[in-house]
Amino acid sequence: MDLNIRGLGKAFGGTVALHPTDLTVRQGSFTTLLGPSGCGKTTILRMIAGLETPDMGTISMGEEVIFSGPSKRVVPTHQRGFGMVFQDFALWPHMTVFENVAFGLRAGKRTSKIRETVMEALDKVKLTGMHDRYPHQLSGGQQQRVAFARAVAITPRLVLFDEPLSALDAVLREDMRVEMMSLVRDLGLTALYVTHDQIEAMSMSDEVVVMNSGRILQSGTPEEVYGEPSDAFVARFIGKSNWLVPDHTMFRPEHLLWDRTGEDCHSFMVEITHVSYVGERYELRVKAEGHGEQWTAYHHTRLAVGTKREVYLPHHRLHHLVESK
């Protein structure tokens, strides 16, 4: 079943958190809401979960309406059949791992074969043998696995992720990203994931929904929103972008070439103003003659600051769009 929201809106006091919004999350897909803090992505997630009440619109799962402003229908959170993984894990410190995972099952009065269900969920997240431990006896990554096991133990129709990896260190976050994505796919779950981290969004998602100021600006595959941004904010927020002002024409740093190819190219004389070593390559800031903005470029060796070089940009790598108002 697809999740459908139509005309969903929310304001807190006089501040609009979400303008009337439409969104469809396809069954079996991994969809990510991506945007800066305050863009409305968490507000959408909490309204879907039933933790916030929308001011308007409808939310449905397949043919089942779980919220309707016009008909004043509100299905309680515990009856929606959704799992949720929170940013701060939200584990009960006085409960064992087993009881934390069993919490949703007991709340939903699904106590038949509860031990078997809990142990199976723990096995899926690689926590076999840890059911008697308490949260404080686990690492951050293990606590996150417990939170995920609790979400999937109820066999949810949809799993909601509220920036679940932000509390982890960088190395563990990358490992958990791969594990979480694999588990979602292996279990055939439908997932809606909220993050401000573009790497998480681009690497995990079937569809990325980019938001800003309470509105959806663009949705599409990671390749589409990166390669063909429809909005200047999207182009700047996802990856690095170089701009030919004032024409609102952009290109990505990796498309700026140091050697001429057989393609039709624009050429620019640039001066290198800054060089950073980032591991697999050098990241350079360059100033092009006749252009006000500095650009980002990549090179496989260190070039000296002050060096002037001719660079080339294939015509087909330019992307034209309209600046956001």
Rank of each mutant, 00 (worst) to 15 (best):
A191F: 05
T195N: 03
H196A: 09
R185G: 13
G227S: 13
D169Q: 01
P156C: 15
Q218Y: 02
R150I: 10
M130L: 08
V159L: 00
T190H: 03
Q143Y: 10
A121D: 13
V152W: 01
R173E: 06
E120Y: 14
L122A: 08
V208Q: 04
M180F: 15
P229E: 03
I154M: 08
V194N: 02
A149R: 04
R145A: 03
V210K: 09
E228H: 11
D175F: 09
M211H: 08
D123S: 15
A167S: 11
L138F: 01
D206N: 12
S182E: 15
G227C: 07
I199K: 02
V159R: 00
F161N: 02
R157D: 06
D186I: 02
E163R: 02
M211P: 09
A147I: 06
P222L: 11
M130W: 04
V171P: 02
V146C: 03
E120W: 15
Y193F: 14
L160Y: 11
E223K: 03
P222V: 12
E179Y: 12
D162A: 08
L217C: 02
L187W: 01
T128W: 03
L168Q: 09
L138N: 01
V184I: 15
E200T: 08
I199T: 03
R185Y: 10
P222N: 10
V171Y: 11
V159M: 02
S166D: 00
Q144K: 13
P156Y: 14
L192K: 12
Q137V: 02
P135M: 15
D206I: 13
I216A: 05
R215M: 05
S182H: 15
R157P: 11
S213A: 12
K126H: 12
R173G: 01
L168A: 07
Q137I: 07
L187R: 11
M181C: 14
L160S: 08
G214K: 07
N212D: 12
R177H: 05
V152E: 06
L189V: 12
D162F: 12
V152D: 08
I199L: 06
N212A: 11
G188I: 07
D162W: 14
H196S: 08
L138C: 03
L172K: 12
A153W: 08
Q142R: 14
T128V: 10
L158I: 13
K124M: 15
L158R: 08
V146E: 01
E207V: 15
